[in-house]
Design a protein around this nucleic acid. Structure first.
Length: 254
DNA sequence: ATGCCTTATTTCATAAGA
């Protein structure tokens, strides 16, 4: 199976690129984040053979799972999911050919003194609680998406530039450790160029071209699934050219 | 080369992203 995850920063704005990318990469299952629409273009991706499960409310957030190998047991959100104040469209689970897949878009957090930061930590803690029985129930499970946390200092272009900022704080990294503690493994993708496994580069100031990025998109898989991985890479080609997302897709073969 | 913000909306300004 070829599994991919991509924060597309609006599936509407990215649709032509998404369709070209699907045809070129031919993933079996795709987790999307920041779809930013209540009306997912299911017909267009359906023409390429994909079933769609989408969870979106409009302008912000939005997640989806596409599959050409079956799509059952769809869960929008998870039990006990925190909100701001109401739950947002940030998590979607589905079973595809026996693999349990979650597409997640973790709250940004903004700044450490912002209420959104506490919301982010609460959301990650509740996600971990909701996934614990899923990890027990499904031998092959992957949580894919934009976690908005760089797991280590090697996952940001310059740790000094992030002192005091979100995405690198100890509590955020501890939240990721909590996910690993319930049995999930960080599937580290290889970069196609250079040594940095970044998945996100800000649109501004030529950050991509200087490789000033971050690894905040992650694939967390159960050990049996992680052990079956034959390749995992970051498709930086998708970050190039006219009208890209600010995130690159991660592609995992197993 | 890879090229210097982008998105949807309560649209000509704003909030959010990270």
């Amino acid at each position: 199976m070829r599994l991919a995850t991509w924060n597309v920063n609006s599936v509407t704005a990215r649709l032509p690129r998404l369709l070209d990318w699907l045809a070129a990469v031919e993933p079996d299952v795709v987790c999307l984040q920041e779809t930013k629409t209540a009306e997912f273009p299911a017909k267009e991706v359906g023409a390429l053979g994909y079933e769609v499960a989408a969870h979106g409310n409009g302008r912000w957030n939005g997640v989806a799972v596409l599959s050409r190998v079956g799509l059952t047991d769809v869960s929008s959100g998870y039990p006990g999911e925190p909100g701001f104040p109401d739950p947002e469209a940030r998590a979607l689970g589905a079973t595809c050919d026996g693999v349990r897949v979650w597409s997640v878009y973790v709250p940004n957090g903004r700044t450490v003194d912002d209420p959104h930061y506490a919301y982010k930590l609460a959301w990650l803690a509740a996600l971990t609680g909701a996934l614990t029985p899923e990890v027990a129930a499904y031998e092959r499970l992957a949580v894919c998406g934009d976690f908005n946390v760089a797991p280590t200092d090697r996952d940001v272009w310059d740790p000094k530039a992030f002192v005091g900022a979100t995405h690198v704080t100890e509590p955020e990294r501890a939240a990721l450790a909590g996910l690993r503690d319930v049995g999930l493994v960080d599937v580290l993708p290889r970069p196609l160029k250079g040594d940095n496994p970044f998945t996100y580069w800000d649109y501004r100031a030529g950050m991509f071209h200087q490789d000033m990025g971050m690894r905040i998109d992650l694939v967390y898989a159960t050990a049996p699934l992680a052990g079956a991985v034959t390749d995992a890479y970051i498709d930086r080609e998708a970050r190039k050219g006219k009208g890209p997302s600010d995130h690159a897709p991660i592609i995992v073969d197993f």
